[in-house]
Design a binder for these strands. Structure first.
Length: 131
DNA sequence: ATTCTGACA
DNA sequence: TGTCAGGA
């Protein structure tokens, strides 16, 4: 019931998302313009992506690798959204999409924690991935 | 060093 | 989509 805040919490900068998804910054920003993702912004106007954003980008990459164009991807993903909303409104949300192994996340997140941890000590992130 | 927006030889 | 400029 609070997993939502976790998956929507703004966590990673562009560089990390690029490595995690294997997509270029250009592509990632392009998909945002097409409303496939809506990352938050830091005070310095830097994009901050959530775990949901990562999952969404990986779905986009899958469809892309399948030869589907932006129009098709939008149709598929935006349809998923309307369905997900109807489910949430009905109390029954089920979206188990863990595309990463804990090791992968820990490795890529360690650097984030070194920085974020400096300001946000013993944060939600640390408890989630290192305990 | 990293990311951002706008633009296109 | 890549890539470069000019800022933050």
């Amino acid at each position: 019931m609070s997993s939502h805040i976790r998956r929507t919490m703004p966590l990673f900068p562009m560089g990390t998302v690029m490595k995690l998804t294997d997509l270029s910054a250009r592509q990632i920003r392009y998909y945002e313009q097409h409303h496939l993702i809506t990352p938050d912004r830091s005070e310095g106007n830097r994009r901050l992506y959530s775990l949901n954003d990562i999952d969404r980008l990986l779905e986009v990459k899958d469809l892309l690798d399948q030869g589907i164009n932006m129009a098709g991807i939008k149709k598929i993903l935006l349809k998923d959204d309307s369905q997900a909303e109807k489910l949430e409104t009905k109390e029954s949300s089920a979206k188990p999409k863990k595309e990463f192994t804990d090791e992968e996340l820990r490795k890529l997140l360690r650097k984030e924690l070194i920085n974020a941890g400096r300001f946000n000590r013993s944060s939600e992130v640390e408890r989630r991935f290192f305990h």
